[in-house]
């Protein structure tokens, strides 16, 4: 079973040279730590920065420099700042190549729910609805099952949707799944996790073709 860091490491393998990438809050933020060596990538944060760098050293925090999770950040050489309308123009205009975000539920047609639990949790969607409606390439980082052991990979989402038919790939602590026109296809399994375990942990049907390889996590 993968740790959160391992999920981030596996997703980092999907980041290609010259990509502009938007990282959501939580596990997706960790992806920045594991970008393959030798490729050029720029991180966009929807509150208005391109070329986001690591967290600042203590004493160097700047209240005027934060990411979409409200955390203090730094910028890298070549960075730029812009207003919110321009930022979402980049996103809707599909200038951002890859969006990585978390989810509470994903369904087999690529629907995603991650912003509201009626009568329990109402925090808001932030930029997630704009991101999932616009991005060509969306990877979801999430836990396969909830704390009660129930699958979050579903035939149909039960929570209010963030977007419809938009998720392309899901990486969980158990598996890598691709969303195909026929439903979830099992691409890889976590080291030491059996295909049977994944089937048992998944409410949606899985398309399983041939031997399913183990993920390679360095």
């Amino acid at each position: 079973m993968l740790t959160k860091e391992d999920i981030a490491k596996r997703i980092a393998q999907e980041v290609k040279d010259k990509y502009f990438v938007n990282l959501g809050i939580g596990i997706p933020t960790l992806v920045a730590n594991y970008i393959p060596k030798g490729i050029e990538v720029e991180f966009q944060s929807e509150n208005g920065v391109l070329g986001m760098g690591p967290f600042p050293f203590e004493g160097e925090e700047d209240a005027d420099l934060i990411n979409a999770g409200k955390q203090t950040i730094t910028t890298l050489e070549g960075a730029s700042f812009f207003d919110s309308a321009t930022s979402f123009g980049m996103i809707r205009g599909q200038h951002v190549d890859l969006t990585i975000l978390g989810a509470m539920e994903v369904s087999e047609n690529g629907d995603i729910a991650n912003w509201k639990i009626p009568e329990k949790m109402v925090k808001g969607m932030g930029g997630a609805m704009d991101l999932v409606a616009s991005a060509e390439n969306i990877i979801v980082a999430m836990m396969h099952v909830n704390k009660a052991g129930e699958s979050k990979i579903l035939k149909k989402c039960t929570l209010p949707l963030t977007g419809v038919g938009c998720v392309k790939k899901v990486v969980t602590e158990l598996a890598v799944l691709e969303v195909t026109p026929k439903g979830f296809k099992l691409l890889e399994r976590a080291p030491g996790v059996s295909v049977e375990h994944i089937i048992a942990s998944t409410e949606a049907d899985l398309i399983i073709e041939g031997e399913i390889p183990e993920m390679i996590i360095d």
Binding site: S84, F88, G127, A128, D130
Partner: peptide
């Protein structure tokens, strides 16, 4: 509650 990009664009 409305999407952030929609909020910005409505402004």
């Amino acid at each position: 509650l409305i999407p952030q990009g929609t909020l910005a664009e409505r402004c």
